[in-house]
Amino acid sequence: MMRFLRRYLWPRWVRSGRVLLGLLSVLAVLAIAVVAPVLAPHDPLAQDLSLTLRPIELRGVYPLGTDGLGRCVLSRLMFGARAAVLVALPAALGALLLGGGLGLAAGWLGGRVERAVGWLAAAWVAFPPVVLALLLVAGGSGVAMAAMLSAWPLFCRVLRAELQAVAGRGHVAAALMLGFPRGQVLWREVVPAVLPAALALLAWVAAGAVGLEAVLAFLDLGGAPDRLSWGRMLADGWEVVFLAPINLVAPGVVLFSVMAGLALLGDGLRGTMGLALPEARLADDAMAGDGP
């Protein structure tokens, strides 16, 4: 598996601008989320009612100013990254495991399992994701759980379709003929082939989860009223937009760049993952005589 990753996925990533840009923004957010307590100039919850709605002063005490309660905008942005990561990461990974597992099981086992999973996924996507998440959050589930439950059918359907394209190939039949147990054939011959699609989808779903978290926080749903989240900052900044526009602009820009970064990452991965050969062959099959 390790060798597969090294050879099969690594080389062309590095050369794709989209992937680099996306990775950069994702890694930056992750790093900030981890070291926020060290990096942040202030306690994000500490109020300084004598200095409310300060404008940007890059060299001042509050580099990006303060909000209506005198809280440091920069610190709040940094801690807000934690909320985004804590929702996006478990939601995307959970959806991958749940949806991907169901999708692969359905495609590989076929028959009754396939029909049941197919119906379930179809019924599930009949609800718009945001409405579904609202219902789930209103029902008391966590935001990450809501994001995961609204995203799993995506993995399920995409991976099942990918599997169906791969399952008919000769190397899968050959592995079956050699006597590998069916489960091992799935793991050895099919999973690596559908992995690029799964990883690309992972990035897209993570972007969706970050957005969903912001929407829910904006609507003040599913969490403490004073929680730190970009969505909450947007809602607060909305009220003071004419007095201190930075309160709306800063979380908006951050939210946009993180989601765009993730989307770029997914896009780039889908475009560049695949077999990268050290010696690229001519596009035309008729010319592929370069073997010794």
């Binding site: 050879r7 190939r169 000769g170 039949a173 003929m177 050699l178």
Partner: peptide
């Protein structure tokens, strides 16, 4: 039957490119 098949019969598949695991 699967055991018996694996030991007795093997098959070469027609489209040689996809017949080999690409990675």
């Amino acid at each position: 039957a699967r055991q018996q098949h694996a030991a007795t019969v093997q098959m070469v598949f027609d489209e040689a490119q996809a017949a080999l695991t690409p990675w």
